[in-house]
Write a protein that binds this DNA or RNA. Structure first.
Length: 173
DNA sequence: GCCAACGTTGGC
DNA sequence: GCCAACGTTGGC
């Protein structure tokens, strides 16, 4: 099981939008960067957990948790000339771009801002800090724990969606 | 809206 | 294969 950070511009697709989906799932398509593509195609697996990050806003940061429910499969929006993500280099026979499906899990009680992340030396190696343009990033278990603790979720991710955050709260590591 | 960082494209 | 030009991302 691995951890990831997915970035999205909330004006395009926000964590709340994911929450408001009827089944709270979303196809994470439109990624057009080879390094991010490699992660989606080869590494992102069902059951992996995702930090949902809002970019391009006055206070960017991690706002919630999602879960991967389907691993990498060809991004069909690349095949569609009508799509803004159309790419003639990609075809069903030889797909270039890949997507995954994610499910809403829970919001962070307190969003963790980029400023806070930059301010924590233990998070200095996150790509977010010095390679901010990568839209799909791996997160180490240590970074995961730290960010959840900073967000007021020190006890870990609630097992069920919908986030009853009472009960099993334990001390941060 | 500006600008720095960085990825991609295309000429040679 | 190099490198300049260009486009995009994203913080501020």
């Amino acid at each position: 099981m691995a951890y990831w950070l997915f970035k999205s511009e909330p004006g395009c697709f926000s964590f709340e939008d994911l929450h408001n989906r009827p089944r709270m799932t979303e196809q994470w398509d439109g990624v057009r960067n080879y390094q991010a593509r490699n992660y989606l195609r080869d590494m992102v697996k069902p059951g992996d957990l995702v930090l949902f990050y809002h970019s391009n806003i006055p206070e960017p940061g991690v706002v919630g948790i999602a879960e991967v429910v389907r691993g990498g499969y060809p991004d069909h929006t690349a095949f569609d000339p009508e799509s803004e993500h159309f790419d003639p280099k990609s075809s069903p026979g030889r797909p270039v771009w890949y997507m995954v499906d994610v499910r809403y899990v829970a919001p962070l009680p307190r969003p963790v801002t980029l400023e806070q992340i930059r301010g924590n030396l233990l998070l200095a190696r996150m790509p977010l800090v010095n390679r901010s343009r990568l839209s799909i990033q791996p997160v180490t278990p240590e970074e995961w724990q730290i960010i959840l603790a900073m967000g007021g979720m020190g006890g870990g991710v609630p097992s069920a969606a919908g986030g009853g955050e009472s009960g099993g709260e334990r001390g941060a590591p």
